[in-house]
Amino acid sequence: MEAGVFRQVAPVLVVDDDTDWGMECAFALRQMGYEPFVASNADEAQALFRTHDISIAIVDYNLPGLDGIALIRELSRYADEHERQLRFIIATGHATKDIAIDAMRASAADFLEKPISPVDLRRALQRVQGLPEAVGERKVLLDRMSQLSGELQRLAGLIDEPVPSAHLGRPAEIAPVLPGGEVDSAQLRKFIKDLLRKESKRREIGGGELFGDPTWAMLLDLLLAKIEARRVSVSSACIASGAPMSTALRLVRRLVDEDVLCRLPDEQDKRRHFLVINPKFEQPLMVYLTEQLHSGG
């Protein structure tokens, strides 16, 4: 009985400079029966770890100053010196295979991509508490990397490479007749990809989202998905926006609330949702892009 009570009040350290996400994560942890401690930087995290009996830490990969991987190494060194156990979960809003590899090398027990659902968070915590050895930890991370690989390849294809035909499926029937003539889906697809490429380069000039337009990038990606007859998950749409994951997630919520986007549940995985543009906005957007294409804009 006492062991069960201990698990219910197990302290968990959350380290993220995004205070909104930190508070959301802390709320979810409390709902699950954990005791959250939230830090916004490495110094706060180290101070909390030294003064509390924390054995699990959820660390954001991109932290100001000392990054997430470096912080994990510092906390691990301190834990070893004081004979304490500490397991890590890496969280990131911009997931890449390199980050997953870094997490594995730093002996992180799990790897989560934002937005993180309460179900995924609970399962990650259960895995962390139940993994008996490093072999199990590596398997979890390798599985994560495998799942991530397909998504990253698709996003890379939007910017630099043609999308492999195996991922396209049959082109969707979209607005067969528009002002100015019939829509050429191949030309329109190329035009939208060019716009996404320009949007990406514009973000790079500003060092991130400063010069970008996350809403427009997200809508372009969803329109492209319609042409290519593929589905776009919420996390994929967030990544395509170019904004930090928490910012992009708030944008998705607003667009859904304003009926610009619609969320569709995945019939095979009830935890996941796909996004589509509301038809009453999709048609005008297609007309606008087609006119831009025909005018050379």
Rank of each mutant, 00 (worst) to 15 (best):
R154H: 08
G169I: 02
S185N: 05
D160S: 09
A156G: 00
P171I: 06
D160N: 08
S146H: 11
Q147H: 15
V183L: 14
G181W: 01
L152H: 08
R189E: 15
S146W: 03
L188W: 07
A156Q: 09
L148M: 15
E182S: 08
S165C: 01
G157M: 00
E151W: 11
V163Y: 10
K190E: 15
V183C: 05
I159C: 04
D160T: 10
S165P: 00
S146D: 11
A166C: 00
G150P: 02
L168Q: 14
V183P: 00
P164V: 12
A186T: 15
V163A: 08
M145A: 14
Q187D: 11
D160Y: 06
R154C: 01
A175D: 09
I159S: 11
M145C: 10
E161V: 10
G150I: 03
E161S: 09
M145V: 12
A186G: 09
F191H: 15
Q153R: 02
V183R: 02
F191M: 03
K190W: 05
R189W: 07
G157S: 13
A172D: 08
E182M: 12
L148K: 02
G169N: 02
Q147P: 00
E151H: 08
L168P: 00
G157F: 01
A166V: 13
P171C: 08
V177I: 13
E182F: 07
G180C: 02
I174C: 14
L155V: 08
L158A: 11
Q153E: 11
L168R: 12
L178W: 06
P162N: 03
L188K: 02
Q153G: 12
L155A: 13
S149K: 05
V183N: 01
D184M: 04
P171K: 03
A186C: 07
L155I: 15
L188M: 13
V177K: 05
G181H: 03
P162I: 03
M145T: 09
L178F: 12
G150W: 01
R189I: 10
G157P: 01
A175P: 02
R154Q: 10
D160W: 09
L188E: 05
G181P: 03
E161N: 10
Q147M: 07
Q187R: 12
E161C: 05
S146P: 00
S146M: 06
I159P: 00
A166S: 08
H167T: 14
R170W: 05
D160M: 04
R154D: 02
H167Y: 15
F191S: 04
A156W: 08
P176V: 07
P164Y: 07
A186F: 08
D160H: 11
A172H: 05
G181K: 00
G150K: 00
V183W: 07
P164L: 01
S149I: 00
V183F: 01
L168E: 13
P164H: 10
S146E: 11
G180N: 04
M145S: 12
L168M: 09
M145Y: 14
P176M: 06
P179F: 10
Q147I: 01
R170N: 05
F191N: 02
D184N: 15
V163Q: 09
S149F: 14
